[in-house]
């Protein structure tokens, strides 16, 4: 299983991310989002950010998770390379995420794109042999 792959899209960035579990899929999706902007090997996980999210279902939780990463990238001026996700179901679905990264240094972080938002266009989660999420990013 490859963690993720990019698909052709004229104006934006489209990818599919996979996982043996929903947690792994969400972690890989975050990595795909970030790799579309900057080389992950140029990022050192010097600092840790924690997020807590809640949603009625996995699809909305996934949307909130990826949107939260865009929000942190912009408001913290940080780039991320490691993503750990834990899910808990009690009534609603809860996500606890741990994100490793560092503050942006344009000398070391050469950006190819800037992700500005996560769209819901063709947004879907499927489970066949493995879990799969498809996402189109607004860049």
């Amino acid at each position: 299983m490859k963690p993720f792959e990019y698909l052709e899209h004229t104006a934006d960035v489209k990818f599919r991310a996979y996982g043996h579990s929903p947690e792994e899929m969400l972690s890989n999706a975050a990595a795909a989002l970030f790799k579309s902007m900057v080389d992950p090997f140029a990022i050192q996980a010097k600092e840790t950010w924690r997020v807590l999210l809640e949603a009625p279902d996995l699809e909305q939780l996934a949307y909130n998770w990826l949107s939260e990463i865009v929000f942190l990238f912009e408001t913290e001026s940080a780039v991320f390379s490691t993503f750990t996700v834990r899910l808990q179901q009690d009534g609603s679905l809860r996500l606890e995420g741990e994100i490793g990264g560092e503050r942006i240094d344009l000398k070391r972080h050469a950006f190819e794109n800037e992700v500005k938002a996560v769209t819901l266009h063709e947004f879907q989660i499927k489970k066949n042999d493995v879990w799969c999420i498809q996402v189109v990013l607004d860049v």
């Binding site: 990019y6 052709e8 104006a11 934006d12 960035v13 794109n113």
Partner: peptide, 10 residues
């Protein structure tokens, strides 16, 4: 209006 994707362009 774009005719070429960003990834192709890069």
């Amino acid at each position: 209006g774009r005719v070429m994707s960003r990834s192709q362009a890069i």
